[in-house]
Simulated scan of single mutants.
Amino acid sequence: MSRTTIDDDRAARTAEPGRRPPELAFGEVRTCLIQNQGTLSTSASVALMQLTPGSPVSKVERPVRRVVSPEQVTGIDCRLNVAREGKGRAIGTVLSHAVVTNGRVLQGSAHVALTAAASSDRREWRHYLRRQGVAEIIGSPNPNNVLDGFLGDSTPTNGVDLASISDRVIEDVQQSSELDHHTALRASTAVVRWAATLEAERSPTVHIVKSDVPNVHAVRLEGRPGDLPMLLRFCEEFALHEWLLTTVKDVIVARAEKDIDRDRDPLDSLLFALNQLVPLWMPPTYLSERMKALWDGVESRTHYTALFDKQVARVRDLRDQVKIRPPRRF
């Protein structure tokens, strides 16, 4: 794989006159804590996101501070992992970027749109570079088999390897000299792998798919080709909220309960959750009506917000329990 960088305008150009529109899109989002003891300021976050010197970094301050790096471009030429039957080859480029939320949470996000090639012959690289973020499929596998093969793939290095690309973005950020390489909490990285079917006049929908890959959450979406930027943003928001729920439930609450049983003090981690993580729970319903519809679809099946509120209440109970606990007698 080879990687270059592009500006935002070229990254957004995935369709040109005379070219076939994308039929599928794949993506992977990895979410973790930034390796820094303190919360990064806006200026520090912007400096951290300067993965390409001179290229613009985008940012918003409200309702949650979000800073996004310039897009990176990685060339791919690989076979497709096709479920059931069929085979194909994908040639083109993948877009990837990093996201810092509220100076605390880091995401590496990679995605590619896929469309059928006009011929069975491989073209020169300059042909594929004209349409960055798009890969052409040589062969004629069933699109549903291609989508299912990507979502269920336990060895992505044998196919469209977005895992390595998104992970590399995170590594580029975490290795920065701007960070002190210490974290206030030991928490794992969450992975959301998503795939979308893109067809004209198709309304955006989302389905959570059971994944057989450990620590990977799979999402299947539908929408129009023009919905791709919105679907990508939704998956990044979903990945952030999935990580928040998992971290509060399986890391902070679980460890605090064990610490209390062993007469250890978990107050620092409980306060970290309440002060640093809970304020980040801001479902993307404010972004657009279509985004709201997608999140409502997730909520109707998972009740994520109710589950998160329950865990937050448990964090507060544990905090209060620690504060009023009498000192240990020796």
Rank of each mutant, 00 (worst) to 15 (best):
L221M: 15
A196D: 00
S166I: 00
V160N: 00
R202D: 07
A218M: 01
A195P: 07
A163K: 05
P204T: 06
A195G: 15
R168P: 03
C235H: 10
G223A: 05
I208W: 10
V173S: 03
A163Y: 07
V160C: 05
L231T: 01
I165T: 12
G226L: 11
I208V: 15
D180V: 08
P156R: 09
L151W: 02
G226C: 05
E201C: 06
D227Q: 04
E222G: 13
W194H: 03
P214L: 07
E199W: 04
S154M: 06
I208E: 12
E178G: 03
H181W: 10
A184Y: 01
V192I: 13
W194R: 03
I170D: 13
K210M: 06
R202E: 10
D172Q: 15
G149E: 14
H182C: 05
R233C: 06
N145P: 10
P143S: 01
P156F: 11
S140G: 09
L151E: 13
H182D: 13
N144V: 10
P225I: 09
L162K: 10
W194E: 05
D172R: 15
S177G: 14
V169L: 09
R233E: 13
L232M: 11
S211T: 02
A190D: 14
A187C: 09
V213K: 01
G152Q: 12
L147D: 13
E178C: 08
Q174D: 14
S176I: 07
A200K: 11
R220P: 00
V216R: 14
D227K: 01
V169E: 15
G226D: 12
S176Y: 11
D227F: 01
L231Q: 07
S166D: 06
P156T: 03
F150R: 07
D212N: 14
G152T: 05
A200P: 00
S140P: 08
